[in-house]
Simulated assay, not measured.
Amino acid sequence: MAVPAFAGVLVVVVVWLAGPGILGPMPSSGGTVVDATVTAPAPCSDPTAKETVQFQAGGQTRTGSLDACGHDKNNRVRIAVPADLGPGQADVHLADVVVGHTDLRRPVGLALLALSCLSGGAYAFLVQRGSRRAALAG
C-alpha cells in the first residue's frame, strides 16, 4: 500500500516542481497593452491566420503581426506588445487572451493529477487486497 501512495505523491511533487508551463501555458511576462488598428485582416479559414496591425510604441507608429483572425479592416483591438520590441515588424497577441485565460489551468490540472494518483492508489489497494468472496467462501 505504501508503494502506490509514495508513487502518487512523488508524481504530484515532480509535476509541481517541474515548472509552471507543464500543465498549461504561462501568462506572458513583461510588455504593455496598447490599442491597435487592423490594417490587413485575415480570414479564419486559414489555420495559420495572421493579421497586420498598426500601433503606437515609443512615440512611433509600428506594424505588428497579430496571431488572430476574423477582424474587419480598421477594427480597434487591444494587443500585448512585448517588452523587448526590436526594429521591424513585431509579433503581438490579443491582450485579453494573453492576460486572462490561463489562470486556472495549472491548479485545476494539478488537482486532476492528484485525483488520478489517488484513484490509481485505491485501485492498487483493491487489487492487492483481492476478492472478499474468495475469503468468505473458504
Rank of each mutant, 00 (worst) to 15 (best):
V38R: 01
L17G: 10
D46Y: 09
S131E: 05
A124G: 04
G86P: 00
V13G: 06
S29R: 13
A49C: 06
P43S: 15
L17T: 13
L136N: 06
A68G: 07
A135M: 05
P47F: 02
V108P: 06
R105H: 10
P27C: 00
V53F: 05
P20F: 08
V38E: 06
A42G: 10
G8F: 11
T61R: 13
A114V: 04
L126A: 12
P4Q: 10
P25R: 13
V3Q: 14
G130D: 02
L66M: 05
L23Q: 05
D84Y: 00
D72E: 15
G31K: 02
V12A: 14
T52W: 04
V77K: 03
V14N: 07
D67E: 14
G86V: 09
A111L: 11
S65M: 11
G109T: 13
R105D: 05
G8I: 09
W16Q: 10
G70E: 06
V11N: 02
Q128M: 11
A83Q: 11
Q128H: 12
V98Q: 15
F55G: 06
Y123V: 15
A135D: 01
A36L: 05
S131F: 09
P4M: 08
L94N: 03
G30Y: 05
S131K: 03
A7Y: 08
V13S: 13
F55M: 05
A90D: 08
P43W: 00
D67T: 11
G64P: 05
V15Y: 05
F125S: 07
S119R: 08
V13M: 13
V38N: 06
A42E: 11
A134S: 14
